[in-house]
Computed example of a mutant assay.
Amino acid sequence: MTAWRRTPDFPRRLPTGITFDVVLATTALVEMAYGILRQYEQTVGPAVRFTNLATAAVLVPPGTAARWGNLVAGTSWLDRSAVPACLGAGHAVRIPGLAPSAQGDPVDWLEAPSAESAIGDAPLLTAPVQLVRCLAEARSLLASSDVRSPLSRAVSAVRAAPLAPQRA
């Protein structure tokens, strides 16, 4: 927080696994999960969105990546292939400055850290157990409200059509 206050418009590339790990998911999924976290009155920590990728990175406590698979296994995550990734040591993520970024910057805050939600100089991070549960709930809600594309509706209609009897 001190470094950001000194140069609030300066983005940084920070290594994960030291002061935080990151959970990567679609921006829509993270936004909905954050809404659910707020409903449950849980801590909502900093998260960034990569504007050119429609992806968001939630900052979680270091060590989360090592136990992410177990956390996901304990939820009702329906589609295991769509589970958000969690990155720990050996990776890095671009973090924007605290000042509003210039247009066209590929990363900005979805939820900026604030002095009000900090312990000392470190912002509170989103708790991984609550995050994975809310991500699973958000995924379930998004899947049930998905409007299918015309192509997927056509494929479903073709698959559902009864086969005509074959002539010999």
Rank of each mutant, 00 (worst) to 15 (best):
W4D: 12
R5M: 10
T7I: 05
T7A: 10
P8Y: 06
P8C: 03
F10W: 10
P11D: 11
L14N: 03
T16I: 00
F20S: 10
D21G: 04
D21Q: 03
T26L: 04
T27P: 09
A28R: 12
V30S: 02
V30T: 09
A33N: 01
A33H: 02
Y34M: 10
Y34G: 12
L37T: 03
Q39A: 11
Y40L: 10
E41M: 00
T43R: 10
G45N: 08
P46Y: 11
P46K: 10
V48S: 06
T51N: 13
N52P: 00
A54W: 14
A56Y: 09
A57N: 07
P62N: 00
T64H: 02
A66W: 03
R67E: 14
R67G: 14
G69E: 15
G69Y: 09
L71N: 07
T75R: 08
T75I: 08
S76D: 14
W77H: 07
L78T: 15
L78V: 14
D79I: 07
S81Q: 10
P84L: 08
C86K: 03
A89N: 02
A89E: 08
G90I: 02
H91D: 08
H91G: 02
V93M: 13
V93E: 09
I95S: 07
L98E: 06
L98C: 01
A99S: 11
S101F: 00
S101M: 14
V107K: 05
D108S: 14
D108P: 09
A112D: 10
A112K: 13
A115Y: 04
E116P: 01
S117M: 05
S117N: 13
A118F: 02
G120H: 01
L124I: 05
L125V: 07
P128I: 03
V129K: 13
V132S: 12
V132L: 06
R133M: 11
R133Q: 15
L135H: 01
L135G: 00
A136Q: 03
R139V: 01
S145C: 00
